[in-house]
Computed example of a mutant assay.
Amino acid sequence: MPTNLGAPLFKYLRREHATRLLAEGILRVGTLHEYRDVGRYGNRVGDSKEGSKGTMLKVDRLDVMSKDDLPEFVRNSFEVGSGKFTFINSTFLVTEDSPDFYIYSVTKRFSAEAMRNLGYDACVRIDDPASFFRALSHSLRHKGSFQGLHSCIYMPRYTPPDKQHNIHPALIKEPEYEGQQEQRAIWQPASSKPRPVILACRKARNYCSRVD
Rank of each mutant, 00 (worst) to 15 (best):
S145W: 12
L93M: 09
L149F: 08
I103Q: 02
T159E: 12
M115Q: 12
F146Y: 15
H168Y: 09
I126F: 06
P156S: 05
Q188P: 01
T91S: 09
D97C: 10
P169A: 14
R116M: 10
I88T: 14
S151H: 13
L149K: 05
P175E: 08
F92A: 04
F87Q: 01
H150E: 00
S191F: 07
L140T: 10
S111Q: 08
E176I: 15
K108D: 14
E113Y: 10
F133D: 03
F110G: 11
D162C: 05
S98K: 13
Q188A: 12
R125I: 14
F110H: 15
R184S: 04
S145V: 14
Y104F: 15
A112M: 07
R195C: 14
H138Y: 14
P189M: 00
Q188C: 11
G119V: 11
E176Y: 14
V124N: 07
N166T: 13
R134F: 13
K163G: 04
P156W: 00
Y104I: 02
D162R: 00
R157N: 07
E113C: 06
E178T: 05
A112K: 09
S105Y: 04
Y104Q: 06
R184V: 11
S145D: 13
D121F: 13
T86L: 01
P194R: 02
L171W: 00
H138V: 13
F133A: 06
K108W: 08
Y177F: 15
P160M: 05
A112R: 07
S105M: 07
Q180G: 07
Y120R: 05
A130R: 08
H150A: 04
R184M: 03
K163H: 09
D97Y: 10
I186T: 07
D97K: 11
S151E: 15
R184G: 04
E96N: 10
H142D: 15
D162I: 07
F146W: 14
S137Y: 00
S111C: 09
I167K: 04
D100I: 07
I186Y: 02
I103T: 11
P169M: 12
E174F: 08
K163D: 05
R116P: 04
H168M: 08
L118F: 08
A135P: 01
K173H: 06
E174G: 10
E178V: 03
S151T: 11
G179K: 04
T107D: 02
M115G: 06
L93W: 00
Q181I: 06
V94P: 03
T159N: 11
H142L: 09
P99G: 09
K193G: 04
D162N: 12
E174K: 12
F133Y: 13
F87S: 00
T91A: 06
